[in-house]
Design a protein around this nucleic acid. Structure first.
Lengths: 232, 232
DNA sequence: AAATATTTGTCCGTATGTATC
DNA sequence: TGATACATACGGACAAATATT
């Protein structure tokens, strides 16, 4: 007398029901969802199961919960997918994947550098100068400067106001963060010089020098993979 | 003594920790995860929070739980997300994200086309010719040819043997598939002609023509965003 | 400002169904 | 058959954040 068909787990059914509820009622970004208690009663399930479904939604960016206030529907964006899911399969020990990812970052930065250059404001450039000083300080203290390096490059591209590109870059940097073991004391001084060259070119508003400095920046060890411009 | 910055909710931290655990231990599809009780103790959290994170993963197809047996890591792909997450009427924000994403795909394909051209085998090109025929058939039957279009472009870049790039492209195509907005019957005939031009150039092993055909392919509506090569 | 109510966050305990030996 | 291990599901309790009076 049981189900003939193998039913999905309750929390998955619940996920679908909530999703259906949102669609059925035409809820858009910002619209409130009923409280947990109300939904439990409405669906006839326990709070734990409801939360398993709701938290799945929240993790994927479909809704957002706030204590004391309630839960609202969110507008969709790709951040979650890029930052938590896309590179899920990229193991940190898989050096090949890491190199591939660096290669993509290199390609993206070099491809977008023209637009970035055009979009950069004086304020952005000043900010990059500050990043340089922070990098220099870390270096003087014999510390790693991953965060500062990231801030430097993100500043360069945040001017493009391309949310997806930003997410993608964040995702790549996040993997880099877990990887950055090697080359601690190797060529950091030359890395600093390369960053310096980029800022100087920008401060002078010299695109040719900027492009050259960017190319040079990515011509070092960990970026040197199969992404070379070969002749055909 | 706490973090000054607003911490993420526990279940989100837990999600990341489990993901990190999987990556750190190099777990692949079929490999078992510790039991819920063990993970709770390991992470120092309650069962509810752990389950909120685990059920999110299961819903996304990263893991699979079975009573009496335990939980295993699953072979992961992105399809599920776009089938479960895309529930909305596409608003302006979403459309902006999608356009940005197309822009990135355009940039990537154009950036990598030299390497792709060099890496393409005769067999790859024959396969692309087959894709073209499939596209033509769908078109003759007045059907959409998203899958065939994807196969065409993925063939072009699979030759690069860049797993991360492939994942990224897959993700972009998956989102595209989920949205499939605009231009149903609009300029499909010209789209076909553009693909045809690409294949012809490849069959002739003419890089100049190939590059031109690629540029032309991406010069259409939905790729036309801020990714223009402006003068400086 | 201060107290109170509302809502989500987190934890615990218990019972049940299912797979394995 | 029975015993064990595990996930599934329920309910209660209190804490933390927010809103309201």
């Amino acid at each position: 007398m049981k189900n003939l068909k193998k039913e999905d787990k309750l929390y998955i059914q619940t996920f679908r029901e909530i999703r259906s509820y949102i669609i059925r009622n035409g809820l858009k970004g910002g619209d409130p969802l009923p409280t947990e208690a109300a939904m439990c009663q409405m669906l006839g399930i326990s709070r734990n199961v409801l939360r398993e479904a709701m938290k799945s939604m929240e993790l994927m960016g479909m809704i957002q919960a706030c204590p004391g206030r309630g839960t609202i529907v969110k507008e969709f964006n790709l951040d979650f997918i890029f930052q938590n899911v896309l590179f899920f399969t990229v193991g940190e020990e898989e050096e090949k994947s890491i190199k591939e990812m660096f290669g993509i970052r290199k390609m993206l930065e070099l491809s977008y550098m023209r637009q970035a250059y055009l979009a950069l404001t004086d304020d952005d450039i000043r900010q990059m100068r500050v990043c340089m000083q922070n990098i220099q300080e870390k270096w003087d203290e014999h510390k790693l400067f991953h965060a500062e390096d990231k801030a430097f490059h993100m500043t360069l591209f945040k001017s493009l106001s391309n949310g997806v590109l930003t997410s993608l870059m964040e995702a790549i940097w996040a993997v880099d963060d877990g990887f950055q073991i090697e080359e601690k004391e190797k060529h950091m001084d030359s890395t600093i010089a390369k960053h310096e060259a980029i800022v100087i070119a920008l401060e002078a508003r010299d695109y040719e020098a900027f492009a050259k400095a960017m190319e040079n920046h990515f011509a070092s060890g960990k970026y040197l993979n199969n992404n070379t411009y070969e002749e055909y």
